[in-house]
Write a protein that binds this DNA or RNA. Structure first.
Lengths: 109, 109
DNA sequence: TCCACTACTCGGCGTTACTATGTACCAGTA
DNA sequence: TACTGGTACATAGTAACGCCGAGTAGTGGA
């Protein structure tokens, strides 16, 4: 993905992470790994941690420290009610955008 | 649309404008008006003009000054070859994102 | 004359993702 | 013991983008 993608991810990456957490709780390193598997190869670790800190400060997630077999303790994030609201709002906005863009793409040929 | 949308528009708004221009040449005020018709009610005028200046500086568009019946002369933008390349790249990135998100949404229930 | 509409420009702001770097813990191994 | 590599989190600085607010200017109608 090119540099365009960097800008396009803004705001969307947060939605993606919230969606991942809505499936089940997860910790930063795990989320980074899952994103890489799903094709987001070049998303920096630091980006995810910064994002997680932000949504923690906005109280969209609950946090639990869990000891790890390997390495430092994990911060496991789980989506709370407020987080679910934000996620729902995200999907609404996304749907709106996706519809408009689909129309534009059709019209463009 | 909420404040989330502001961030989500980043990068995408440029694609939208390029797509509009790929249909046919247009000038700033006209583009703003068309966006409003299509539901992007709260996109600031200044945002569009700034975006147009950026894509002009990156040589994605050709510019022609055309006198207007009402008000100051119009700057009519038309997509050139380079702009078409960037638009194509935009659609590729968009498709990628749209696919991933569709998967996430399915998995989420 | 005043207002509304058309049309473009500019400076400053907040948010976001990226880069680069650092800390720390553990297991295997030579 | 020392080294390497994988796990796990944190942070400082940067660039880009969209928003806000204000300003300039031309036209036509009340």
């Amino acid at each position: 993905m090119g540099k365009q993608a960097t800008e396009m991810l803004k705001g969307i990456l947060e939605g993606i992470v919230l969606a991942i957490l809505s499936d089940r709780p997860a910790y930063g390193y795990e989320i980074t790994a899952r994103l890489r598997e799903q094709g987001f190869a070049d998303i920096a670790e630091g980006t995810i941690y910064a994002l997680l800190l932000r949504i923690e400060q906005r109280s969209l997630v609950d946090v639990e420290k869990v000891p790890s077999e390997k390495g430092p303790p994990r911060k496991v994030y789980s989506l709370n009610a407020q987080g679910r609201d934000v996620l729902a709002e995200f999907w609404r906005t996304w749907s709106f955008l996706a519809e408009r863009l689909e129309q534009l793409r059709e019209g463009g040929r």
